[in-house]
């Protein structure tokens, strides 16, 4: 059923990576991705691969879940590789039809790009697989707090994200219900060409939007009734506090960065 869908791709298990502070994971992922673009030789990528493998091992998430994320970008990956392969200037290795040629530089760039993208996706998958969406929002709110000085509504955005996460399953269930109700009255969502099918979505979307607005209104009232008045003066039930393991993780990350920049 629709209500059983998991949001994001959180893989529930208990590991040291799961228990890390979300800020460590967020910061770590960003730094890791940056490091992938600094590295310029194969040895550097080897270090990056080893580091990633270690984190995956510690996270206790089966490797096939990491691969799942790859499927969505496979097409993008393919295009990037092909473009780099054929459109880079340099010393040609093979030439087709006397015009298109694969160069040595192009081959190198294509391979590196493929490695980069693969590591980038797997690296960020590790984060989303080991952190609940809620935790992630919390981490982002805390990390972006300095932006408040620039009047960026950090708390409000985080609150919106967590409310959206809470309501997505409810709205999905509602979509299902409305769809069935409309099918029962003879609506046809499946046949016809693309345009006809898009048109047939109208009787689904209109009630869905009305209901979403009504829910939003109710929720706003319920939040006000429970004294919600924005982020100021609010305490946290689950505040983010760095523990020893988080400092250790930062240390490990620093070691990795030094090594990868050193040899890359």
């Amino acid at each position: 059923m629709l209500r059983d869908i998991t949001l994001g791709q959180y893989y529930p298990t208990d590991s040291i990576i799961h228990r890390l502070d979300p800020r460590v994971k967020l910061g770590g992922t960003i730094l890791y991705i940056l490091s992938l673009f600094f590295v310029k030789n194969i040895l550097g990528y080897l270090v990056a691969a080893l580091f990633l493998a270690l984190v995956i091992r510690l996270s206790k998430v089966p490797f096939k879940f990491m691969i799942k994320g790859m499927k969505t970008i496979l097409f993008l990956l393919l295009i990037t590789v092909i473009f780099n392969l054929f459109l880079t200037q340099g010393t040609p290795i093979v030439t087709f039809f006397g015009k298109v040629s694969i160069t040595y530089e192009g081959l190198k760039l294509a391979v590196f790009m493929a490695i980069r993208l693969t590591f980038l996706i797997i690296g960020s998958s590790v984060m989303t697989l080991t952190t609940t969406p809620n935790n992630l929002t919390d981490g982002m709110e805390r990390m972006l707090r300095p932006l408040k000085v620039l009047r960026v509504p950090v708390h409000e955005v985080a609150m919106m994200m967590s409310i959206a996460l809470r309501f997505i399953p409810i709205l999905l269930e509602e979509t299902d219900k409305i769809m069935k109700a409309q099918i029962a009255r003879g609506a046809d969502f499946e046949s016809g060409n693309l345009l006809q099918r898009a048109k047939s979505m109208v009787p689904l979307l209109v009630p869905l939007f009305i209901s979403a607005f009504r829910r939003a209104n109710d929720l706003a009232m319920a939040m006000e009734a429970r004294c919600y008045r924005g982020g100021d003066g609010r305490t946290k039930m689950k505040p983010l506090v760095y523990e020893q393991k988080d400092y250790l993780a930062y240390a490990a990350l620093a070691v990795y960065l030094v090594i990868s920049i050193g040899i890359g």
């Binding site: 809470r166 009504r214 109710d218 929720l219 319920a222």
Partner: peptide, 11 residues
């Protein structure tokens, strides 16, 4: 309030 879904904020 009446509708339990529309007043629960936490996940």
């Amino acid at each position: 309030f009446q509708n339990p879904d529309n007043q629960i904020i936490g996940q």
